[in-house]
Design a protein around this nucleic acid. Structure first.
Lengths: 343, 343
DNA sequence: CCGGCTGGATGAAACGTTTTAGCCGCTATA
DNA sequence: TATAGCGGCTAAAACGTTTCATCCAGCCGG
């Protein structure tokens, strides 16, 4: 019942224990005949290598961890899938931990991961302050790569997406379509992403000097319901002041806006154009397919994992890098309706 | 740099190595003064327990694995969250593995997990055939709990949701609302869930003997696009034959139907009522909030984890159990419009 | 015939815990 | 006063690998 160990395999094959280990780890250094005998013994005994012992000897494990803010958030699930891919290609294993935006849980996870001597940690940390836990990990020699947060740190790598650029893309597109009264919907502004996207939009508007105006409506959250409420407010405006286009801080808000507007008899994009952010799966499936700014989510995960593995590689000195990806505007029906320029 | 070990802590605190271990594992058996000295040594040295060594000694790890078909599927993410909760309460750690519906990857994961001597495995296996990998695990004494698949096996626990009942609930509701021409939309029927939900609906109809008729439209997939196409087909029927209610095998199809119908000028639920299945987050956020059959997803994860931990508990003989949960109908606007009975 | 080399195998140390048996000094009991 | 018991601690074995220093036999060149 108790699984066979390497010693029993050795006895069964009539070789020494070290030879079995060699068969497992350096098969070419052992004579074909003996190798085969050992392999046979392994299969007949159903031997399975004990990773704890291997790790103990090696001093570290072959697993990489990713700590996300929410396992159920499509953004992170895509990042996970990307990371998974490269980690598995490297013969390691990716374990997914969920902090649930709770820093106590995050800390507990990091402690456990440290006890496990993981090879490295990909993490989107809770909050924005200093990160003593992460510094501790790094001090201990466990590489850490930040995902979509705090690009600036010197002692670790990071990957992120340029949200300011994302805001610019959306705004440039709407200006190109001839809009002059545009709204930005999103909040709270304390979320870096929300603020950055707005900053990008504002900067783009400024630079164009087109005389267009940007109205900002701060929402309490990034949900469909918040989008509906925001749309109601827009509808309360006199028609002449009402924006002809809205740029939303994420797709949930955009979908809420879309629903409310169509429910009230406005046509999208003819009366109001909409651009969302994130390009979630439903963007394409909405009643009016939604234009959206897409982030290269799986690539975020992939390069994060690559940076980590590179850093974990022994030998060559590693230089920390901060990779910033560029988002991409996906134009669909919700904003595809150029209007004659007028002012 | 290399992390301090228990021996150094002992030396630093002027005690024996075993005493340090006692402080860590049975603090009450060591005198307060010594205990404090050891704790101080631990913090000043920054000692972190080496889990590999602990596991090696213990013979098994303190982690539980869950292998899902798709990390990005909301169903599984909720199951994961549920499982996570109870596993963490038990002081263990949950690692999430993604098979991606690929049996090779599933096998590889199981092999690695076995090498790690995990405490147990929660899994929704790929495919429906026999499961030699799982049997192997069980032979080795690693408990396995099936999630939402293959309830019948004798050598393992399982948790599932009664999809036949779900079909009944939806159908009963529509019949209660006075509908007589009803359609079931979903496919392919090779998916057990799709077939079960249909079976339940058909059985409910049969039992009521109301003279109502059920039209089945098999779709190629469970997507929004498939729902749209199915709705088009319904619209092509002469109005007198057109169903006044549709029950969809999942919410994506239902949303597609909703979009297509409203786009073509039909009102939901006045002209056509819709009931979906799964109660995904968007069901409530749709243009017309969608009635849906809800599965207790996180509870599925929670009890799966509980069964597993119970089985992993040494000592008392464990009896395998097969827990079947009952789904629940959530009525929202999309089907809330009773029509006068007529035939 | 001898020394050196090489492919192939061996034995033992080491990794860092947990656990068990045992030791020591003290107190309470007879 | 002897003894049993006990609290508090120590020493050592064991967990299953990997790796490193050795060793052995055979072979080749000198």
């Amino acid at each position: 019942m108790a699984t066979a160990n390497i010693k029993e395999v050795a006895r069964h094959a009539g070789v020494s224990l070290g030879t079995v280990s060699n068969v497992l780890n350096r098969p070419d250094t052992v004579a074909p005949a003996t190798r085969q005998r050992v392999l046979d013994a392994i299969t007949t005994l159903g031997y399975v290598r004990n990773d704890s012992a291997r790790q103990l000897r090696a001093g570290h494990s072959r697993t990489v961890a990713i700590v996300v803010l929410d396992v159920a958030n499509p953004f992170f699930t895509d990042v996970v899938r990307g990371a998974e891919q490269v980690v598995e290609e490297a013969g390691a294993m990716l374990v997914v931990c969920n902090s649930g935006e709770d820093s106590a849980r995050e800390r507990r996870h990091l402690e456990l991961l440290e006890e496990q001597r993981v090879r490295g940690v990909l993490i989107t940390p809770v909050g924005h302050g200093p990160q003593p836990n992460l510094d501790k990990l790094i001090d201990r020699g466990i590489p850490v790569v930040l995902v979509d947060r705090g690009t600036g740190r010197a002692n670790r790598c990071s990957v992120a997406v340029d949200d300011v650029l994302g805001g610019r893309l959306a705004m440039d597109h709407l200006l190109d379509q001839g809009h002059h009264r545009i709204a930005y919907l999103g909040g709270p502004l304390s979320i870096a992403q929300v603020a950055d996207r707005h900053a990008g939009a504002a900067a783009a508007l400024e630079e164009r000097d087109s005389g267009a105006e940007l109205r900002v409506a701060v929402t309490g959250s990034l949900t469909v319901a918040a989008g509906r409420r925001a749309a109601e407010e827009l509808l309360a405006l006199p028609a002449r002041q009402r924006p002809t286009a809205v740029f939303c801080a994420n797709d949930l808000i955009a979908l809420g806006v879309l629903q409310e507007l169509t429910a009230r008899g406005l046509r999208v994009p003819a009366d109001v154009a909409i651009v969302g952010y994130d390009d979630i799966e439903f963007a394409d499936a909405a009643a009016v397919p939604l234009s959206s700014v897409r982030q290269p989510r799986d690539q975020l995960g992939r390069t994060a994992a690559q940076l980590l593995l590179e850093e974990a590689e022994p030998g060559d000195a590693h230089r920390h890098r901060h990779v910033v990806f560029q988002p991409e505007l996906v134009v669909r029906r919700s904003s595809d309706h150029p209007r004659r320029a007028r002012r």
